Simulated assay, not measured.
Amino acid sequence: MMQKTLRIHPNGPFDLKLTIQSGQTSQPPWKFVNGEFQELLMIQGKPCFIGIHQKPDDLDGPLTLRAESKYEIEDDEIRSKVCEIFDLEHDLMELYSFLESSEKLQPTIGFCRGLRLFKAQDPFECIISSICSANNSIARWNKSILQIKEKWGDEFDFASGEFHSFPSPETLMKVPEHDIEEMELCGCIGEPSDYKENLKSCGVGYRCSYMKEAARMAHEEIDITKLGDMDYDNAFNEVLKFPGVGPKVADCILFYGYGMGQAFPVDVWIGRIISALYFKREEIKPPKARTFGMEEFGEHAGYVQLYLFHYARKSGLLESLKKK
């Protein structure tokens, strides 16, 4: 059993807890056990347990990693995977220089210092998480995705506990949508044992059929491993082919799943925040807010959206907008 402890030095400040718990649709938060965040990572196809922690209030210090695997994995491979997920090589001070140049954006830094992209290790998990998040609370879609992992993902046991990977598109597309009673009603029942577990039981509601069809398309029609190599516009148009994916969810997938910084996910609340800050509270529709954000913030658009939403939640701006 490989067991090792490593250090990582982020490029600029990093708030581990804030990032993991910020509601980004890449994945549910990692488990928090005994003072560290824990998750299963697939590193060069090898399952590896990672436990990560930082000293309290030391956003500029190094991170400490614990790694466990029955396979031998190089230190640089482990560091590279963790750096990719938390965007640790991104120069956050460059982002802050951009934010400080704007009177409207500068206040976000104080509320969001160290907040980074929480990128999906598995883009398919991000696609399903983002579809599941539409018109849904963070707590509910997190619970649904965790149940999907536990029911149909591969199970791995480590000294530190049991973890599950996210199921493959081929696996998820074969999961029944409904329970046995509903299957009987529609006259399409097979062996009862085939329907002990169903996707609807994970609380995904009407999104169930979207998620199953997205799984089928990811398995049969769209090579999701190549989306990150496309330019933004082509990738955006390709992702829109998935059912249940409109512009907002597509931008979530491209930012949180593939790290495309020019993506600017806009829901009704980001639209209202942009309206309040830039259009003298004249409410504009999400398509206009999205175009404005991409043009105004450029390569920083994804991070600006992330910072604006967290700032609005913590500063009271979002609450004031709900009253209007």
Rank of each mutant, 00 (worst) to 15 (best):
S102D: 15
K4R: 13
P62Y: 06
F49K: 05
K314F: 12
P47E: 03
A214D: 07
C202V: 11
K149H: 03
E282S: 11
L306R: 09
R272G: 02
P247K: 09
C252M: 11
S193K: 11
F309W: 08
P123N: 02
M211K: 00
V204N: 09
G257L: 11
Y71W: 13
P56F: 13
R207G: 06
L240V: 13
A139W: 06
F158C: 04
T64D: 10
V82K: 02
P176G: 08
R66A: 02
T171N: 08
A276L: 10
W141D: 01
D15M: 06
G61L: 14
R113A: 09
Q3Y: 15
H9S: 11
K174W: 11
Y311L: 04
D267A: 11
N198A: 04
V266S: 04
I43E: 00
L6E: 04
F37C: 05
A218L: 03
K212E: 01
G203K: 01
A67I: 06
Y311H: 12
D122W: 11
P247S: 09
Y303H: 12
C186N: 07
F264Q: 00
K212F: 03
Q106P: 00
I131N: 07
R79W: 07
E238P: 02
T5C: 05
I85W: 00
S101Q: 06
G61S: 14
S129H: 00
D229N: 15
I273R: 01
K151N: 13
L146K: 11
I222C: 05
A214E: 02
H90L: 08
L92T: 12
W30K: 00
Q106H: 13
P176Q: 09
H219V: 00
F264M: 02
V249W: 06
A139S: 15
M183V: 10
S129F: 01
G51R: 03
G244P: 05
K212P: 00
S80A: 15
S320G: 10
L227N: 07
M217A: 03
E213G: 02
P247F: 05
M294G: 07
C48K: 09
K55T: 15
F98R: 07
S168P: 04
E74F: 12
R113H: 09
R7C: 10
N34D: 15
T171V: 15
N198V: 01
E84F: 15
G228A: 04
D58R: 06
K119H: 01
I189V: 14
N136Q: 09
I78A: 10
E220V: 06
I222T: 09
I52E: 08
A214F: 00
I224L: 07
L6Y: 11
S144A: 15
Q27C: 12
K55H: 06
K174T: 08
F124N: 06
A289V: 06
D267H: 05
D233S: 14
F163V: 02
E89D: 15
S101F: 05
S320F: 07
E282D: 13
A276W: 10
L185P: 02
A235C: 12
K241H: 01
S69W: 00
G35E: 13
D223T: 02
D229K: 14
C126G: 03
Q44K: 15
K322R: 13
G23L: 14
A159T: 14
P286D: 02
D194K: 01
S275Q: 03
Q24S: 06
H219A: 05
K280Q: 14
C48G: 08
E72K: 12
